[in-house]
């Protein structure tokens, strides 16, 4: 029974590694293209000036962070239903990349907010605050993870948190939106009228981040699978 699982894990590991290699070139190209589009192709925004260019990376990482947490949610359900460790490894890899992407979102947002809204931290914007709460939830997921020994229990607990955290997102969003609309709103996010070239740039940037997410996800998942395989092989060798 052990060896059968080991075999399946080995194959899963090969698949993930293969995908990481396959996606590396597209990710690199899209990244280069996104850089070109952001700095050279996209026109300078009239009111905000060059600093607006941060918008493309800001939104690109934000959208993909949401995708990442959705993947955590799906993989967590899959783990609880099947108890296959590969789902857990996928969930944690996605959490890690998601947390990095949310951090990028928050930091770039902060840098953007300073010259535009004259504050590093625009509490008035519900999207910022919701992203912050997301960041808090998934960092707590990683903390939970680090305080448990390897094993089914750890994977189960993390899966439970991955599910509970994700279904909380709409409630957090609604409550924060109402909270802010009931206070005097100091800063507003007036709708930016995006030019066609800006929309192109945004799309490229979103896809670049999506490709980066996929590569990192595959790499982290295969890395975890390898760690596990090494441990299990050690156990098997010692048993013999």
């Amino acid at each position: 029974m052990w060896s059968k699982n080991l075999d399946a894990d080995l194959q899963a590991n090969r698949r993930y590694t293969a995908w990481a290699v396959r996606l590396l070139a597209p990710a690199f190209l899209l990244g280069a293209l996104a850089l070109y589009a952001t700095f050279l192709y996209a026109p300078t925004e009239k009111v905000m000036g060059d600093v607006q260019r941060i918008f493309y990376f800001h939104v690109g990482s934000a959208w993909n962070a949401f995708v990442a947490f959705f993947v955590v949610f799906l993989a967590s359900i899959a783990y609880l239903r099947t108890r296959r460790v590969k789902w857990d490894q996928l969930a944690v890899a996605s959490t890690e990349v998601g947390v990095v992407f949310t951090t990028i979102t928050l930091v770039t947002g902060s840098i953007w907010a300073k010259p535009i809204w004259y504050t590093w931290w625009p509490w008035g914007d519900p999207r910022v605050t919701t992203t912050l709460v997301l960041w808090l939830m998934y960092v707590s997921y990683l903390i939970l993870r680090s305080s448990l020994p390897e094993g089914d229990q750890k994977y189960k607990f993390c899966a439970v948190l991955g599910i509970i955290g994700f279904i909380n997102v709409p409630i957090v969003w609604m409550s924060i939106r109402w909270w802010r609309t009931h206070h005097p709103v100091v800063v507003t996010t007036s709708g930016m009228n995006l030019e066609t070239k800006m929309v192109h740039t945004l799309m490229i940037s979103v896809f670049a981040f999506a490709a980066l997410y996929a590569v990192l996800l595959c790499l982290r998942t295969s890395m975890r699978l390898q760690e596990r395989l090494t441990r299990e092989m050690e156990v098997e060798v010692l048993a013999k």
Binding site: V133, M137, S140, L144, M174
Partner: peptide, 10 residues
């Protein structure tokens, strides 16, 4: 508290 407080923010 680390797990609970982020969730109960709403």
């Amino acid at each position: 508290p680390i797990l609970l407080f982020p969730i109960v923010i709403p």
